[in-house]
């Protein structure tokens, strides 16, 4: 059931970075023509506010930007630590242990999974809780397809994820910055949502280690830390699973952590963000509700108090 969700950016069918860079110029050329710039980029938000889209023409960040400024605390807390140390991580062989309330539990090798999945490309906004953002052209498959493969049972209500913990390859885990291993979770409807994907590549290449090789979660309407990297465990369960940042600072990081400019965070204002790549004089831009995916996902939270469930 791949391709549930359509990227209408035609050029994005092609993958090499040079093509993106070309389009970057095309988009820049169109920027003056608001309406056309908008039309060229609404694809991502199928039929939603063109006003937003036209000021926000989703040009992907460069591969260099995407791979040199990362949070992957297993390799250190500096933004450049992952780029420096993550190549120590062995990503082949790789197995994902799938267990809990599934019909077909077991150790799935990365190759097993890839053989059964259809890889597609998705250009998503990526918003970090630290108030910076990027636009990333991911390659991957929908998480729903993997959950179908594992046969998630109807009684399961949540999916829990776990990152690799291998101290000899991860210099950052020698200090308890967080309670290792890194764990995350989604409610079942979030996990099954067509926007939720497992990324295995960027710009048509294998996922770089610092971005969470060989496979990671991408949930574009939530703060980046929900999109757990280098996954080795997936568990279907009927209770809300613990999540790393919530365990560390429950007042600051909730289970949901949806991008929400109106919900205050004690550390960073979430009202605005800075798009990476604008240099020293880049201005902040307003943060969009659900990171611009309001039309697609607001329904998941109908009737919920998003201040209480932040």
């Amino acid at each position: 059931m791949a391709n549930r969700w359509k990227n209408t950016l035609k050029e994005s069918d092609a993958t090499p970075e040079s093509v993106y860079l070309n389009r970057r110029q095309i988009m820049a050329g169109l920027a003056g023509l608001g309406a056309i710039g908008g039309a060229a980029s609404v694809g991502l938000m199928s039929g939603s506010k063109p006003a937003v889209a036209s000021t926000d023409p989703l040009e992907p960040n460069t591969l260099e930007e995407i791979t040199s400024y990362n949070n992957f605390y297993e390799f250190g807390t500096g933004k450049d630590d992952p780029a420096r140390y993550a190549d120590q991580m062995t990503t082949s062989p790789w197995t994902v242990k799938v267990d809990g309330m599934v019909d077909r539990p077991g150790d799935y090798t990365f190759e097993d999974i890839m053989a059964k999945m259809t890889i597609e490309e998705r250009i998503y906004r990526f918003r970090c809780v630290e108030a910076w953002s990027m636009v990333i052209p991911w390659n991957g498959f929908e998480l729903a397809d993997l959950l179908e493969l594992a046969g998630v049972q109807s009684s399961a209500k949540y999916i829990a994820f776990e990152t690799l913990l291998r101290p000899e390859e991860m210099p950052g885990v020698n200090f308890p910055v967080l309670d290792w291993p890194y764990v995350e979770g989604l409610r079942m409807d979030e996990a099954m949502h067509p926007l939720t994907m497992m990324a295995t590549g960027i710009y048509g290449r294998d996922l770089p280690n610092q971005n969470g090789a060989p496979l990671r979660l991408v949930v574009p309407w939530k703060y980046g830390f929900k999109s757990i990297k280098s996954i080795v465990g997936i568990t279907a369960m009927d209770q809300e699973p613990p999540t790393s940042w919530n365990k560390s600072q429950p007042r600051e990081y909730g289970f949901y952590s949806n991008v929400n400019p109106e919900v205050n965070h004690p550390r960073w204002s979430q009202a605005s963000e800075r798009r990476i790549g604008g240099g020293l004089f880049a201005k902040r831009v307003p943060t969009l509700m659900f990171n611009g995916y309001e039309d697609e996902v607001a329904g998941l939270y109908a009737g919920m108090d998003l201040r209480a469930h932040f």
Binding site: Y69, W132, R274, G279, L280
Partner: peptide
């Protein structure tokens, strides 16, 4: 360095 792209891709926070 920050103004000339030699302080990474997010020079504001780095500076």
């Amino acid at each position: 360095l920050a103004a000339n792209g030699q302080m990474g891709v997010e020079p504001i926070n780095t500076l």
